[in-house]
Computed example of a mutant assay.
Amino acid sequence: MSDYRKITETPSLHDNLETLGVEALLGKMNEEDRKVPEAVGRCIPAITQLVEAIEPRFLSGGRLFYIGAGTSGRLGILDASEIPPTYGMPHDRVIGLIAGGDAAIRKAVEHAEDNTAQAWKDLQAHGIGPMDTLVGIAASGTTPYVLGGIRKAREEGLLTAGITNNPGSPLALAAEIPIEVEVGPEFVTGSTRMKSGTSQKLVLNMISTALMIRIGRVQGNRMVHMQLSNNKLIDRGTRYLVEALNLSYEEAGKALSRYGSVQKAIEALSQG
């Protein structure tokens, strides 16, 4: 690890930021942001390996856990929280945990990320077991909370992955499947909520979306298991049925109301 260096802490490629006008600042930020999708694209083989390894575990009842601190933890919680409404999965199948607990979602909890043992304690509260998968998220790749959780989980036989923005980091070495997204120095030196955070969001989207598609929660390109929790989603579901079954909008609305989900309505009316 002697050649390991934190790219995320190296000086920005842009200087004298306080002298720039707003349009120039935004243009230079955008210049840096355009590098992120390419960096994520280079990680597709590792992301593929992870999704393919999660799929059989998940279909056998295993769960997907994310752990992180600060921005990384919040992004994991965001991804996990969107799975039930988008794909109709129970809330306990994809779970995000953040150092410092739920209070840290809105307000930083001092030194919470420095506790190496706490992540495993948090995971044990959810009855974590060998069929589960643990993804640690840390731009630096050195966060003690994440490292402790990943190392213990791997010892216990869980599938582990690490999303980091520093290749060769301790997290990349500790996880079975390292996803090393090298986005380069941040626009504001060390501000990993920027490019690093954006890359983490993209990778998490790819992991969970690909997994949900693979396990049958999407038909064609439609979210046929989404929760019908507001008028916008009811309208979307109705339009899906119009397109899938050649119904009138009124007929589709009645079918959706009767069966409670797009998938159930399609199954029932296709058989009929």
Rank of each mutant, 00 (worst) to 15 (best):
M212E: 04
P178I: 00
P170R: 10
H126N: 06
H225C: 14
E113I: 06
V183F: 03
A104Q: 03
A119P: 05
S196V: 08
V188M: 14
D132N: 03
T143P: 09
I179W: 07
T189W: 05
M223E: 07
A174W: 02
I177S: 11
M212D: 02
N165I: 07
E176Y: 00
E113M: 11
N205I: 05
E110D: 13
Q200Y: 02
R193Y: 00
A175N: 02
P170C: 12
A139V: 12
A125T: 10
L134T: 10
M223T: 13
G129F: 08
A138M: 09
A112W: 03
D132F: 06
T192N: 05
S191C: 08
S199C: 04
L158W: 09
Y145S: 09
S191N: 10
L202Q: 14
L202Y: 02
Y145Q: 09
K121I: 15
L211G: 03
D122E: 08
T116P: 09
E113P: 13
H126T: 01
V183M: 01
T198G: 04
E176A: 13
I179S: 07
V109C: 00
V188K: 10
I177Y: 11
I207F: 05
D114M: 07
I105D: 09
V224L: 06
S140Q: 04
V183T: 14
G127Q: 02
S208K: 02
G216Q: 12
T133N: 05
E156Y: 08
G162L: 05
F187Y: 15
A161R: 09
E113T: 05
M212Y: 04
L134I: 12
K107E: 14
D132V: 06
S169N: 03
G141Y: 01
S191L: 09
G129N: 15
E113V: 12
N166L: 09
V109Q: 01
L211V: 05
F187D: 00
R151G: 12
Q219F: 14
E113L: 11
G149N: 00
V146R: 06
G168H: 09
M206D: 01
A210M: 12
G101C: 12
A117R: 13
L159W: 03
A139Q: 02
V181I: 15
A108V: 12
